[in-house]
Design a protein around this nucleic acid. Structure first.
Lengths: 234, 234
DNA sequence: TCACGGATTTGATCGATGTCAAATTCTGAT
DNA sequence: ATCAGAATTTGACATCGATCAAATCCGTGA
Protein backbone atom coordinates (compact mmCIF):
# COMPACT_ATOMS: atom_id res chain seq x y z
CA UNK A 1 0.00 0.00 0.00
CA UNK A 2 1.68 3.12 -1.18
CA UNK A 3 0.74 6.79 -0.89
CA UNK A 4 1.99 9.44 -3.21
CA UNK A 5 3.78 12.29 -1.48
CA UNK A 6 1.29 14.52 -3.19
CA UNK A 7 -1.90 13.30 -1.65
CA UNK A 8 -2.54 11.02 1.19
CA UNK A 9 -5.97 9.55 1.43
CA UNK A 10 -6.78 7.43 4.43
CA UNK A 11 -9.94 6.34 6.12
CA UNK A 12 -8.72 4.53 9.19
CA UNK A 13 -6.58 6.82 11.30
CA UNK A 14 -8.05 9.62 13.38
CA UNK A 15 -5.73 11.33 15.82
CA UNK A 16 -6.87 12.69 19.15
CA UNK A 17 -7.12 16.30 18.14
CA UNK A 18 -9.13 15.47 15.01
CA UNK A 19 -11.36 13.19 17.02
CA UNK A 20 -12.04 15.95 19.55
CA UNK A 21 -12.96 18.39 16.77
CA UNK A 22 -15.20 15.82 15.16
CA UNK A 23 -17.12 15.15 18.33
CA UNK A 24 -17.81 18.85 18.77
CA UNK A 25 -19.38 19.10 15.33
CA UNK A 26 -23.08 19.98 15.51
CA UNK A 27 -23.65 16.74 13.64
CA UNK A 28 -22.15 14.54 16.29
CA UNK A 29 -21.98 16.47 19.52
CA UNK A 30 -25.50 15.66 20.65
CA UNK A 31 -25.56 12.07 19.48
CA UNK A 32 -25.20 9.05 21.69
CA UNK A 33 -25.18 5.30 21.44
CA UNK A 34 -26.64 3.85 18.33
CA UNK A 35 -27.10 7.11 16.43
CA UNK A 36 -23.48 8.00 16.98
CA UNK A 37 -22.28 4.62 15.79
CA UNK A 38 -24.42 4.80 12.69
CA UNK A 39 -23.23 8.31 11.84
CA UNK A 40 -19.63 7.26 12.29
CA UNK A 41 -20.15 4.40 9.92
CA UNK A 42 -21.49 6.80 7.27
CA UNK A 43 -18.24 8.72 7.61
CA UNK A 44 -14.68 8.36 6.43
CA UNK A 45 -11.58 10.45 7.05
CA UNK A 46 -9.65 12.07 4.23
CA UNK A 47 -6.34 13.88 4.33
CA UNK A 48 -5.27 16.22 1.59
CA UNK A 49 -2.29 18.46 1.02
CA UNK A 50 -2.56 22.16 0.20
CA UNK A 51 -4.52 23.32 -2.85
CA UNK A 52 -6.25 20.08 -3.65
CA UNK A 53 -9.73 20.13 -5.13
CA UNK A 54 -12.40 18.52 -2.97
CA UNK A 55 -15.21 18.97 -5.44
CA UNK A 56 -16.18 21.21 -8.32
CA UNK A 57 -19.25 23.23 -9.13
CA UNK A 58 -21.82 21.16 -10.98
CA UNK A 59 -20.49 17.79 -9.86
CA UNK A 60 -22.84 15.27 -8.40
CA UNK A 61 -23.14 15.89 -4.66
CA UNK A 62 -22.63 12.53 -3.02
CA UNK A 63 -20.97 13.67 0.18
CA UNK A 64 -20.71 16.56 2.58
CA UNK A 65 -17.74 17.33 4.77
CA UNK A 66 -16.57 18.55 8.12
CA UNK A 67 -13.14 20.16 8.50
CA UNK A 68 -11.10 18.46 11.21
CA UNK A 69 -7.83 20.31 10.71
CA UNK A 70 -6.62 22.79 8.11
CA UNK A 71 -8.84 25.03 6.01
CA UNK A 72 -11.12 24.79 3.01
CA UNK A 73 -11.97 27.50 0.56
CA UNK A 74 -15.38 27.54 -1.15
CA UNK A 75 -15.34 29.76 -4.19
CA UNK A 76 -16.98 30.52 -7.49
CA UNK A 77 -15.73 31.87 -10.79
CA UNK A 78 -17.25 34.77 -12.61
CA UNK A 79 -17.51 35.04 -16.35
CA UNK A 80 -13.94 36.35 -16.65
CA UNK A 81 -12.53 33.40 -14.73
CA UNK A 82 -11.75 35.48 -11.67
CA UNK A 83 -12.53 33.64 -8.47
CA UNK A 84 -14.25 34.96 -5.36
CA UNK A 85 -14.34 33.21 -2.03
CA UNK A 86 -17.81 32.47 -0.72
CA UNK A 87 -16.71 30.95 2.52
CA UNK A 88 -13.61 29.82 4.37
CA UNK A 89 -14.19 26.71 6.47
CA UNK A 90 -12.18 26.25 9.66
CA UNK A 91 -11.85 23.17 11.86
CA UNK A 92 -15.32 22.27 13.09
CA UNK A 93 -17.10 23.79 10.10
CA UNK A 94 -19.35 21.70 7.91
CA UNK A 95 -19.87 22.39 4.23
CA UNK A 96 -22.25 21.23 1.50
CA UNK A 97 -24.58 19.79 4.12
CA UNK A 98 -27.34 22.02 2.72
CA UNK A 99 -27.49 19.61 -0.22
CA UNK A 100 -28.92 16.90 2.01
CA UNK A 101 -32.33 18.15 0.97
CA UNK A 102 -31.54 21.18 -1.12
CA UNK A 103 -30.27 19.81 -4.42
CA UNK A 104 -28.14 17.20 -6.09
CA UNK A 105 -25.20 19.18 -7.49
CA UNK A 106 -22.43 21.06 -5.76
CA UNK A 107 -22.94 24.79 -6.17
CA UNK A 108 -19.34 25.93 -5.94
CA UNK A 109 -15.76 24.76 -5.97
CA UNK A 110 -14.07 23.51 -2.82
CA UNK A 111 -10.33 23.23 -2.37
CA UNK A 112 -7.97 22.90 0.56
CA UNK A 113 -6.14 26.03 1.63
CA UNK A 114 -3.59 24.11 3.72
CA UNK A 115 -2.83 20.51 4.52
CA UNK A 116 -6.26 19.45 5.66
CA UNK A 117 -8.06 16.53 7.24
CA UNK A 118 -11.75 16.10 6.50
CA UNK A 119 -14.56 13.94 7.74
CA UNK A 120 -16.52 12.83 4.70
CA UNK A 121 -20.19 11.93 5.22
CA UNK A 122 -22.04 9.95 2.63
CA UNK A 123 -24.99 12.08 1.62
CA UNK A 124 -27.48 9.30 1.00
CA UNK A 125 -26.53 7.44 4.15
CA UNK A 126 -27.08 10.51 6.32
CA UNK A 127 -30.30 11.28 4.49
CA UNK A 128 -31.55 7.84 5.42
CA UNK A 129 -30.33 8.17 8.98
CA UNK A 130 -32.04 11.51 9.43
CA UNK A 131 -35.32 9.92 8.44
CA UNK A 132 -34.89 7.12 10.92
CA UNK A 133 -33.30 8.65 13.99
CA UNK A 134 -34.91 11.64 15.63
CA UNK A 135 -31.73 12.91 17.21
CA UNK A 136 -29.90 12.85 13.90
CA UNK A 137 -32.63 14.90 12.28
CA UNK A 138 -32.30 17.34 15.14
CA UNK A 139 -28.55 17.47 14.71
CA UNK A 140 -29.01 18.29 11.05
CA UNK A 141 -31.44 21.05 11.93
CA UNK A 142 -29.08 22.55 14.47
CA UNK A 143 -26.21 22.50 12.05
CA UNK A 144 -28.21 24.08 9.25
CA UNK A 145 -29.61 26.73 11.58
CA UNK A 146 -26.22 27.84 12.80
CA UNK A 147 -24.80 27.78 9.33
CA UNK A 148 -27.67 29.87 8.00
CA UNK A 149 -27.18 32.44 10.74
CA UNK A 150 -23.49 32.87 10.04
CA UNK A 151 -24.19 33.17 6.33
CA UNK A 152 -26.80 35.87 6.89
CA UNK A 153 -24.32 37.65 9.14
CA UNK A 154 -21.89 37.48 6.28
CA UNK A 155 -24.35 39.22 3.95
CA UNK A 156 -25.02 41.84 6.60
CA UNK A 157 -21.32 42.37 7.13
CA UNK A 158 -20.63 42.74 3.43
CA UNK A 159 -23.41 45.24 2.97
CA UNK A 160 -23.01 47.20 6.16
CA UNK A 161 -19.34 47.53 7.03
CA UNK A 162 -16.19 48.88 5.40
CA UNK A 163 -12.99 46.89 5.20
CA UNK A 164 -11.43 48.30 8.39
CA UNK A 165 -14.66 47.70 10.28
CA UNK A 166 -14.78 44.07 9.17
CA UNK A 167 -11.19 43.54 10.19
CA UNK A 168 -11.83 45.22 13.55
CA UNK A 169 -14.86 42.95 14.01
CA UNK A 170 -12.75 39.91 13.30
CA UNK A 171 -10.09 40.94 15.78
CA UNK A 172 -12.59 41.87 18.47
CA UNK A 173 -14.41 38.55 18.24
CA UNK A 174 -11.12 36.91 19.17
CA UNK A 175 -10.05 39.30 21.92
CA UNK A 176 -10.70 38.97 25.62
CA UNK A 177 -13.80 40.87 26.67
CA UNK A 178 -12.12 43.41 28.91
CA UNK A 179 -11.04 46.67 27.39
CA UNK A 180 -7.28 46.56 27.89
CA UNK A 181 -4.45 45.49 25.55
CA UNK A 182 -4.58 42.15 23.79
CA UNK A 183 -2.63 40.02 21.39
CA UNK A 184 -3.87 37.37 19.02
CA UNK A 185 -2.26 35.15 16.45
CA UNK A 186 -3.90 34.43 13.10
CA UNK A 187 -4.35 30.71 12.59
CA UNK A 188 -3.78 31.02 8.83
CA UNK A 189 -2.37 33.17 6.06
CA UNK A 190 -3.74 36.66 5.52
CA UNK A 191 -4.77 35.45 2.15
CA UNK A 192 -7.50 33.41 3.77
CA UNK A 193 -8.58 36.14 6.13
CA UNK A 194 -9.06 38.37 3.11
CA UNK A 195 -11.29 35.76 1.49
CA UNK A 196 -13.24 35.34 4.70
CA UNK A 197 -13.96 39.05 4.84
CA UNK A 198 -14.73 39.36 1.15
CA UNK A 199 -11.66 41.46 0.42
CA UNK A 200 -8.74 41.36 -1.96
CA UNK A 201 -5.47 40.66 -0.08
CA UNK A 202 -4.28 44.19 -0.80
CA UNK A 203 -7.46 45.62 0.69
CA UNK A 204 -6.91 43.60 3.84
CA UNK A 205 -3.38 44.89 4.08
CA UNK A 206 -4.57 48.47 3.73
CA UNK A 207 -7.28 47.88 6.29
CA UNK A 208 -4.61 46.79 8.75
CA UNK A 209 -2.61 49.89 8.06
CA UNK A 210 -5.73 52.02 8.59
CA UNK A 211 -6.18 50.31 11.95
CA UNK A 212 -2.63 51.20 12.97
CA UNK A 213 -3.85 54.64 13.94
CA UNK A 214 -6.31 52.93 16.28
CA UNK A 215 -3.53 51.09 18.04
CA UNK A 216 -3.38 47.86 16.05
CA UNK A 217 0.07 46.46 15.32
CA UNK A 218 0.60 43.62 12.87
CA UNK A 219 3.81 41.60 12.65
CA UNK A 220 3.53 38.45 10.63
CA UNK A 221 0.60 36.53 12.01
CA UNK A 222 0.64 38.33 15.36
CA UNK A 223 -1.84 41.14 15.90
CA UNK A 224 -1.48 43.35 18.94
CA UNK A 225 -4.19 45.70 20.14
CA UNK A 226 -3.29 48.54 22.47
CA UNK A 227 -6.83 49.24 23.60
CA UNK A 228 -9.61 46.81 22.82
CA UNK A 229 -12.25 49.33 23.86
CA UNK A 230 -10.93 51.96 21.45
CA UNK A 231 -11.08 49.45 18.61
CA UNK A 232 -14.75 48.86 19.32
CA UNK A 233 -15.54 52.46 18.45
CA UNK A 234 -14.45 52.13 14.83
CA UNK B 1 -64.55 44.41 17.97
CA UNK B 2 -62.87 47.30 16.25
CA UNK B 3 -59.75 47.53 14.11
CA UNK B 4 -57.81 50.70 13.63
CA UNK B 5 -57.45 51.76 10.03
CA UNK B 6 -53.75 51.73 10.70
CA UNK B 7 -53.24 48.09 11.40
CA UNK B 8 -55.50 45.17 11.03
CA UNK B 9 -54.58 42.09 12.95
CA UNK B 10 -56.69 39.01 12.46
CA UNK B 11 -56.19 35.33 13.02
CA UNK B 12 -59.30 33.78 11.58
CA UNK B 13 -59.65 34.66 7.91
CA UNK B 14 -57.47 33.17 5.23
CA UNK B 15 -58.45 33.82 1.64
CA UNK B 16 -57.91 31.34 -1.15
CA UNK B 17 -54.79 32.88 -2.57
CA UNK B 18 -53.13 33.12 0.84
CA UNK B 19 -54.11 29.56 1.61
CA UNK B 20 -52.58 28.34 -1.64
CA UNK B 21 -49.32 30.14 -0.89
CA UNK B 22 -49.29 28.76 2.62
CA UNK B 23 -49.72 25.18 1.47
CA UNK B 24 -46.77 25.52 -0.90
CA UNK B 25 -44.48 26.61 1.91
CA UNK B 26 -41.70 24.09 2.50
CA UNK B 27 -43.06 23.87 6.03
CA UNK B 28 -46.46 22.65 4.99
CA UNK B 29 -46.26 21.33 1.48
CA UNK B 30 -45.13 17.84 2.41
CA UNK B 31 -47.29 17.44 5.49
CA UNK B 32 -50.46 15.40 5.68
CA UNK B 33 -53.09 14.46 8.17
CA UNK B 34 -52.20 14.89 11.77
CA UNK B 35 -48.92 16.74 11.24
CA UNK B 36 -50.62 19.27 9.03
CA UNK B 37 -53.36 19.86 11.55
CA UNK B 38 -50.90 20.31 14.37
CA UNK B 39 -48.77 22.73 12.37
CA UNK B 40 -51.85 24.75 11.47
CA UNK B 41 -52.79 25.00 15.10
CA UNK B 42 -49.35 26.40 15.94
CA UNK B 43 -50.03 29.11 13.38
CA UNK B 44 -52.00 32.31 13.21
CA UNK B 45 -52.56 34.79 10.41
CA UNK B 46 -51.58 38.43 10.71
CA UNK B 47 -52.30 41.30 8.36
CA UNK B 48 -50.28 44.49 8.46
CA UNK B 49 -50.28 47.68 6.45
CA UNK B 50 -47.15 49.11 4.85
CA UNK B 51 -44.07 49.93 6.94
CA UNK B 52 -45.12 48.20 10.12
CA UNK B 53 -42.50 46.63 12.33
CA UNK B 54 -42.80 42.87 12.72
CA UNK B 55 -39.92 42.51 15.14
CA UNK B 56 -36.74 44.30 16.13
CA UNK B 57 -33.18 43.19 16.49
CA UNK B 58 -32.48 41.84 19.97
CA UNK B 59 -36.09 41.09 20.82
CA UNK B 60 -37.01 37.72 22.16
CA UNK B 61 -37.67 35.38 19.25
CA UNK B 62 -40.96 33.70 20.02
CA UNK B 63 -42.25 33.25 16.48
CA UNK B 64 -41.12 32.83 12.92
CA UNK B 65 -43.11 33.83 9.86
CA UNK B 66 -44.09 32.99 6.34
CA UNK B 67 -45.10 35.70 3.89
CA UNK B 68 -48.49 34.97 2.33
CA UNK B 69 -48.92 38.21 0.41
CA UNK B 70 -46.97 41.43 0.28
CA UNK B 71 -43.29 41.83 1.14
CA UNK B 72 -41.08 41.98 4.19
CA UNK B 73 -37.76 43.71 4.52
CA UNK B 74 -35.11 42.31 6.86
CA UNK B 75 -32.47 44.91 7.62
CA UNK B 76 -29.81 46.00 10.04
CA UNK B 77 -28.45 49.35 11.10
CA UNK B 78 -24.81 50.25 11.12
CA UNK B 79 -23.17 52.47 13.69
CA UNK B 80 -24.25 55.64 11.85
CA UNK B 81 -27.89 54.57 11.83
CA UNK B 82 -27.88 53.86 8.10
CA UNK B 83 -29.87 50.78 7.26
CA UNK B 84 -28.96 48.00 4.86
CA UNK B 85 -31.33 45.33 3.63
CA UNK B 86 -30.21 41.79 4.35
CA UNK B 87 -33.10 40.09 2.63
CA UNK B 88 -36.40 40.85 0.97
CA UNK B 89 -39.03 38.20 1.62
CA UNK B 90 -41.68 37.52 -1.03
CA UNK B 91 -44.85 35.46 -0.78
CA UNK B 92 -43.85 31.90 0.10
CA UNK B 93 -40.64 32.94 1.88
CA UNK B 94 -40.06 32.05 5.50
CA UNK B 95 -37.98 34.18 7.83
CA UNK B 96 -36.45 33.80 11.29
CA UNK B 97 -37.01 30.05 11.14
CA UNK B 98 -33.27 29.61 11.71
CA UNK B 99 -33.90 30.60 15.32
CA UNK B 100 -35.78 27.36 15.92
CA UNK B 101 -32.46 25.92 17.06
CA UNK B 102 -30.03 28.71 16.38
CA UNK B 103 -30.65 31.26 19.12
CA UNK B 104 -33.23 33.05 21.18
CA UNK B 105 -33.08 36.63 19.91
CA UNK B 106 -33.97 38.13 16.56
CA UNK B 107 -30.83 39.14 14.72
CA UNK B 108 -32.25 41.96 12.61
CA UNK B 109 -35.24 44.20 12.12
CA UNK B 110 -38.23 43.07 10.10
CA UNK B 111 -40.83 45.40 8.66
CA UNK B 112 -43.48 45.20 5.99
CA UNK B 113 -42.70 46.81 2.66
CA UNK B 114 -46.33 46.77 1.52
CA UNK B 115 -49.66 45.73 2.91
CA UNK B 116 -48.77 42.23 3.95
CA UNK B 117 -50.33 39.05 5.27
CA UNK B 118 -48.19 36.72 7.34
CA UNK B 119 -48.48 33.26 8.79
CA UNK B 120 -47.06 33.40 12.28
CA UNK B 121 -45.69 30.17 13.74
CA UNK B 122 -45.13 29.84 17.43
CA UNK B 123 -41.47 29.00 17.83
CA UNK B 124 -41.78 26.73 20.86
CA UNK B 125 -44.77 24.89 19.48
CA UNK B 126 -42.98 24.08 16.23
CA UNK B 127 -39.86 23.13 18.14
CA UNK B 128 -41.91 20.59 20.07
CA UNK B 129 -43.64 19.35 16.94
CA UNK B 130 -40.36 18.86 15.13
CA UNK B 131 -39.21 16.62 17.95
CA UNK B 132 -42.36 14.55 17.80
CA UNK B 133 -43.26 14.25 14.15
CA UNK B 134 -40.70 12.96 11.69
CA UNK B 135 -42.22 14.65 8.69
CA UNK B 136 -42.22 18.02 10.42
CA UNK B 137 -38.53 17.67 11.23
CA UNK B 138 -37.96 16.87 7.60
CA UNK B 139 -39.97 19.89 6.51
CA UNK B 140 -37.83 22.08 8.73
CA UNK B 141 -34.69 20.60 7.24
CA UNK B 142 -35.90 21.19 3.71
CA UNK B 143 -36.83 24.75 4.46
CA UNK B 144 -33.51 25.53 6.13
CA UNK B 145 -31.56 23.88 3.33
CA UNK B 146 -33.23 25.90 0.61
CA UNK B 147 -32.91 29.07 2.60
CA UNK B 148 -29.22 28.46 3.22
CA UNK B 149 -28.61 27.87 -0.46
CA UNK B 150 -30.25 31.11 -1.52
CA UNK B 151 -28.34 32.99 1.16
CA UNK B 152 -25.03 31.58 -0.02
CA UNK B 153 -25.99 32.51 -3.57
CA UNK B 154 -26.59 35.99 -2.27
CA UNK B 155 -23.06 36.20 -0.88
CA UNK B 156 -21.66 34.86 -4.13
CA UNK B 157 -23.69 37.35 -6.11
CA UNK B 158 -22.56 40.28 -3.98
CA UNK B 159 -18.92 39.32 -4.24
CA UNK B 160 -18.84 38.22 -7.85
CA UNK B 161 -21.09 40.42 -9.92
CA UNK B 162 -21.44 44.12 -10.69
CA UNK B 163 -24.72 45.97 -10.41
CA UNK B 164 -25.74 45.55 -14.08
CA UNK B 165 -24.88 41.85 -13.93
CA UNK B 166 -27.05 41.35 -10.86
CA UNK B 167 -29.93 43.15 -12.49
CA UNK B 168 -29.49 41.11 -15.67
CA UNK B 169 -29.47 37.94 -13.55
CA UNK B 170 -32.68 38.98 -11.89
CA UNK B 171 -34.38 39.67 -15.20
CA UNK B 172 -33.12 36.47 -16.81
CA UNK B 173 -34.35 34.28 -13.96
CA UNK B 174 -37.83 35.58 -14.73
CA UNK B 175 -37.68 35.36 -18.52
CA UNK B 176 -38.77 32.48 -20.72
CA UNK B 177 -35.90 30.18 -21.54
CA UNK B 178 -35.82 30.77 -25.29
CA UNK B 179 -33.61 33.51 -26.62
CA UNK B 180 -36.12 35.87 -28.19
CA UNK B 181 -37.79 39.04 -26.87
CA UNK B 182 -39.52 39.03 -23.52
CA UNK B 183 -41.42 41.27 -21.16
CA UNK B 184 -41.78 41.03 -17.41
CA UNK B 185 -43.48 43.11 -14.78
CA UNK B 186 -41.88 43.80 -11.42
CA UNK B 187 -44.14 42.66 -8.59
CA UNK B 188 -42.95 45.51 -6.34
CA UNK B 189 -41.30 48.90 -6.20
CA UNK B 190 -37.77 49.32 -7.52
CA UNK B 191 -36.89 50.29 -4.01
CA UNK B 192 -37.28 46.68 -2.95
CA UNK B 193 -35.46 45.28 -5.94
CA UNK B 194 -32.52 47.49 -5.02
CA UNK B 195 -32.52 46.09 -1.50
CA UNK B 196 -32.75 42.55 -2.83
CA UNK B 197 -29.69 43.07 -4.98
CA UNK B 198 -27.76 44.90 -2.30
CA UNK B 199 -27.82 48.22 -4.14
CA UNK B 200 -28.81 51.78 -3.41
CA UNK B 201 -31.91 52.76 -5.41
CA UNK B 202 -29.82 55.16 -7.47
CA UNK B 203 -27.40 52.37 -8.34
CA UNK B 204 -30.28 50.21 -9.52
CA UNK B 205 -31.54 53.01 -11.69
CA UNK B 206 -28.13 53.44 -13.26
CA UNK B 207 -27.79 49.70 -13.76
CA UNK B 208 -31.03 49.78 -15.75
CA UNK B 209 -29.76 52.60 -17.87
CA UNK B 210 -26.53 50.67 -18.48
CA UNK B 211 -28.63 47.73 -19.65
CA UNK B 212 -30.46 49.94 -22.14
CA UNK B 213 -27.57 49.50 -24.54
CA UNK B 214 -28.13 45.73 -24.27
CA UNK B 215 -31.72 46.09 -25.34
CA UNK B 216 -33.48 46.44 -21.99
CA UNK B 217 -36.32 48.95 -21.79
CA UNK B 218 -37.86 49.99 -18.50
CA UNK B 219 -41.15 51.83 -18.21
CA UNK B 220 -42.58 51.92 -14.73
CA UNK B 221 -42.69 48.36 -13.52
CA UNK B 222 -42.56 46.85 -16.99
CA UNK B 223 -39.21 45.58 -18.27
CA UNK B 224 -38.85 44.63 -21.91
CA UNK B 225 -35.94 42.66 -23.26
CA UNK B 226 -35.24 42.73 -26.99
CA UNK B 227 -33.00 39.67 -26.98
CA UNK B 228 -32.80 37.42 -23.95
CA UNK B 229 -29.76 35.64 -25.34
CA UNK B 230 -27.82 38.88 -25.72
CA UNK B 231 -28.58 39.78 -22.11
CA UNK B 232 -27.07 36.51 -20.97
CA UNK B 233 -23.68 37.58 -22.30
CA UNK B 234 -23.32 40.51 -19.94
C1' DT C 1 22.87 31.19 9.11
C1' DC C 2 21.72 32.00 4.22
C1' DA C 3 19.25 32.17 0.27
C1' DC C 4 15.11 31.33 -2.25
C1' DG C 5 10.36 31.67 -3.28
C1' DG C 6 6.05 32.68 -1.87
C1' DA C 7 3.42 36.01 0.93
C1' DT C 8 2.54 40.61 2.01
C1' DT C 9 2.85 45.43 1.55
C1' DT C 10 2.96 49.61 -0.93
C1' DG C 11 2.20 52.72 -4.85
C1' DA C 12 -0.47 54.34 -8.63
C1' DT C 13 -4.52 54.19 -10.92
C1' DC C 14 -9.25 53.04 -12.25
C1' DG C 15 -13.83 51.74 -12.01
C1' DA C 16 -17.88 50.96 -9.34
C1' DT C 17 -21.05 52.39 -6.07
C1' DG C 18 -22.73 55.32 -2.25
C1' DT C 19 -24.39 60.01 -1.22
C1' DC C 20 -26.83 64.25 -1.54
C1' DA C 21 -29.55 67.38 -4.09
C1' DA C 22 -32.44 68.58 -7.79
C1' DA C 23 -35.35 67.41 -11.62
C1' DT C 24 -38.72 64.41 -13.31
C1' DT C 25 -42.08 60.86 -13.41
C1' DC C 26 -45.51 58.10 -11.48
C1' DT C 27 -49.56 57.00 -8.56
C1' DG C 28 -53.57 57.28 -6.15
C1' DA C 29 -57.11 60.10 -4.28
C1' DT C 30 -60.17 63.63 -5.15
C1' DA D 1 -58.80 64.92 -15.39
C1' DT D 2 -56.01 67.11 -11.82
C1' DC D 3 -52.93 67.50 -8.10
C1' DA D 4 -50.03 66.43 -4.17
C1' DG D 5 -46.92 63.42 -2.45
C1' DA D 6 -44.07 59.66 -3.24
C1' DA D 7 -40.97 57.16 -6.21
C1' DT D 8 -37.51 57.28 -9.54
C1' DT D 9 -34.04 59.27 -12.31
C1' DT D 10 -30.23 62.20 -13.18
C1' DG D 11 -26.18 65.02 -12.06
C1' DA D 12 -22.12 65.98 -9.45
C1' DC D 13 -19.21 64.26 -6.41
C1' DA D 14 -16.63 61.54 -2.83
C1' DT D 15 -15.12 57.15 -1.40
C1' DC D 16 -14.08 52.57 -1.36
C1' DG D 17 -12.03 48.78 -2.94
C1' DA D 18 -10.07 46.17 -7.12
C1' DT D 19 -6.22 45.77 -10.05
C1' DC D 20 -1.52 45.55 -11.68
C1' DA D 21 3.20 46.17 -10.85
C1' DA D 22 7.05 46.69 -7.97
C1' DA D 23 9.27 46.45 -3.59
C1' DT D 24 9.79 44.20 0.68
C1' DC D 25 9.08 40.82 4.15
C1' DC D 26 9.16 36.29 6.05
C1' DG D 27 9.35 31.43 6.71
C1' DT D 28 11.48 27.27 5.20
C1' DG D 29 14.77 24.14 3.76
C1' DA D 30 19.61 23.56 2.85
Amino acid sequence: MEETADMMNSNFKLNNRDRAVLMKTPFLTSLTGNSLVRMMSAMSVISLTNRKSIFREGENADAFYCVLSGYVRLYQLNRDGREADIRICSPGDTFAECLLYGGTKYRHHAQTAEATTLARFDMQAVRDLAEQERDIAKAVITSLSKHLITTMDCVANDRLHTAPQRVADYILKRCPVDGGPASIRLPFQKNLLAGMLGLAPEALSRAFSTLRRTGVTVRGRVIQVVDVQALREI
